[in-house]
């Protein structure tokens, strides 16, 4: 390989790398820089680790983290629900293509639209509770969005409902690409529905499930802002019961004029997300290697 051909690939990708560095790299560097400054307006004095110290000693920050971690409980439900529905659709029930569209609909709709409707439905004297009271289930007529004991679970319900739509489509797409002869063989061997799902389908779904789990975890750690913003009255309420890390960052940046604090939390969130992306890439590499072998 001569000198020119050795550098040629790098030259081809250089414009894109430069663009990426400008779009993502520069802001990232600035965020890291801001996290060590007491920013007022657009800059401020260097204060070392003080922002991190303040954040890590603040109960509200840890409460936000705890809420994010609680929301992670949604992930197993999302996986199980998506898998179940995908398997049912895979059975090609009559009208399964229509069901597929209907089930994917929540994912296409903007979160604020869904949340506004859900908020109306789940008001204390709203339609859901009216129906529950009408059928004699008064004990279930909770203050879904007004009680600090319940609001986070309402948010979780909304997340499961919407985010599962992606899981259903991903899983179904993978199932439709499976070798059907394996299923036929299992049937001929006398495997029942459950055995076919557990021993034939699920093992072949491992990669897509790993992908969905990791992306869902990342979503819940760093992309649930719209859900809590809408359901929690824009404030993470009632009280601070639906406050999550993203809303904490938003408040610090926009509402409390503390860009340095917002930057410090952003850096921590970025690093945690990065840690989660590593296993995702590892899983994909492993899958590729398995396929190649």
């Amino acid at each position: 390989m001569n000198q020119t051909s050795r550098f040629a690939p790098y030259l081809y990708v250089a414009p894109l790398v430069a663009l990426l560095l400008f779009v993502f790299g520069y802001p990232l560097v600035r965020i890291f820089e801001f996290s060590f400054k007491m920013v007022r307006g657009i800059d401020g004095p260097w204060i070392g680790l003080r922002n991190y110290e303040l954040v890590l000693n603040q109960p509200l920050f840890w409460e936000s983290v705890r809420h994010n971690l609680l929301l992670l409980l949604a992930v197993p439900f999302m996986v199980a629900w998506s898998l179940l529905i995908a398997v049912v659709l895979y059975e090609r029930l009559k009208g399964w293509k229509l069901y597929r569209v209907v089930l994917f609909l929540p994912y296409i709709l903007a979160i604020p639209i869904i949340a506004v409707i859900m908020k109306k439905l789940f008001q204390f004297n709203g339609p859901v509770n009216e129906v529950l009271r009408w059928i004699g289930l008064d004990f279930l007529a909770l203050d879904w969005i007004g009680s600090s004991d319940v609001a986070l679970w309402t948010v979780m319900l909304l997340i499961i409902w919407r985010e599962s739509a992606l899981g259903i489509i991903l899983f179904l797409a993978r199932m439709l690409s499976l070798d059907e002869s394996l299923m036929e063989a299992a049937k001929l061997e006398g495997a029942n529905w459950w055995q076919r799902v557990w021993h034939v389908i699920v093992p072949q779904m491992r990669v897509v499930m790993e992908f969905y789990i990791v992306t869902s975890v990342i979503t819940i750690l760093s992309a649930v802002f719209a859900y809590v913003y809408m359901i929690g009255g824009g404030r993470g309420g009632p009280g601070t019961s639906t406050m999550v890390v993203e809303l904490y960052i938003f408040n610090a940046l926009i509402r409390t004029s503390l860009p340095g604090i917002a930057a410090a939390v952003s850096v921590m969130l970025f690093l945690v997300s990065l840690l989660l992306i590593v296993p995702l890439f590892a899983a994909r590499r492993r899958a590729n290697e398995e396929e190649t072998a």
Binding site: L60, G146, S147, S148, R235, G237, P238, G239, T240, N251, R255, T256, S257, L258
Partner: peptide
């Protein structure tokens, strides 16, 4: 102050009413 507004003023009233 904004920080007090977000972390005390709004949440306390909600929590007391609740």
């Amino acid at each position: 102050p904004g920080q007090f507004y977000e972390q005390a003023l709004l949440p306390t009233a909600q929590q007391v009413v609740e």
